[in-house]
């Protein structure tokens, strides 16, 4: 009688220990369903894939956390984060001062340059000294005078075009897909977008005359790169994710993943 009682207690205790070990942190990660290859996209089987998905998996393994991807439209990501529907945004979100007013960011996990692409009739774009005299370089506004340039609304590229291309017509699109479609249609002469997205698009549409016109020099507007978006008071998760980023960078796991998707240094310098 006593024996069987003891046995039961041992079993119960071991179950408690096992669940404690299994109870990993749960992190809900917000990603927009708008395809952004090769970073994030849903494949035909409705599974997430891409550089950020692989990197996220590596980071979550490093943090020993149980990450669950929640699909939320791009505009809704920050409200969802602050509304505690998700704990982290992992969606190529550039670290900007404007965004820092409402959310916090991890360290950057990649930083790719901006690129100008154009139709076959559009000339290459040159580079000139930034007129602010601080020594930086910018895409030459004179080359774009009178031309129409497409950008996606509420992006660093839209900000850059608005600041430097005053003599050009800057046409604002709701998505990058749409300005790409209009570039092929010839309704715009150039588009300014991230080099990674640009490379893919140029490869797919080279036959239609679309080509790279300039890798845009680094500029304060472009910021320091993309980081994981976090709630302002969530220091615990911020420390964990920053440590995890450092660890996968140091272990070489980051480079292994990056090589699968990019021929250049996506982390930036």
């Amino acid at each position: 009688m006593l024996k069987s009682f003891m046995k039961g207690a041992v079993v119960a205790a071991s179950v408690v220990i096992a669940t404690a070990a299994m109870a990993k942190d749960k992190i809900r990660v917000g990603i927009s369903p708008e395809a952004y290859p090769p970073f994030t996209s849903l494949n035909a089987k409705n599974q997430w894939e891409g550089f950020e998905i692989d990197l996220l998996a590596a980071l979550c393994k490093q943090m020993d956390a149980d990450c669950k991807i929640v699909s939320i439209a791009w505009d809704g990501l920050i409200p969802a984060l602050n509304g505690k529907k998700i704990d982290m945004i992992f969606n190529s979100m550039s670290i900007t001062d404007e965004r820092k007013k409402v959310i916090d960011f991890s360290d950057k996990y990649y930083n790719s340059p901006a690129e100008i692409i154009g139709t076959k009739d559009a000339a290459n774009v040159t580079v000139v000294d930034n007129p602010d005299g601080k020594g930086g370089k910018i895409a030459n506004p004179a080359d774009l005078k009178g031309k129409t340039i497409g950008v996606q609304t509420a992006t660093i590229h839209a900000d850059y075009a608005a600041k430097y291309f005053k003599d050009a017509t800057v046409k604002v699109y709701d998505t990058a897909d749409n300005h790409n479609a209009d570039l092929v249609a010839g309704r715009i002469d150039y588009a300014l977008l991230d080099s990674v997205a640009a490379d893919d698009f140029v490869k797919a549409n080279a036959a239609k005359g679309v080509g790279a016109k300039l890798i845009v020099p680094a500029d304060p507007i472009f910021g320091v790169g993309a980081g994981a978006g976090l709630r302002k008071n969530d220091a615990k998760l911020k420390d964990k994710i920053n440590a995890a980023i450092k660890a996968v960078r140091a272990s070489g796991e980051y480079d292994t993943i990056a090589k699968k998707y990019f021929s250049f240094n996506i982390y930036g310098d």
Partner: peptide, 13 residues
Amino acid sequence: YGLGELFPGTWVQ
């Protein structure tokens, strides 16, 4: 966007 697909390289431009 549909009509846009028809225009490239035609007299319309």
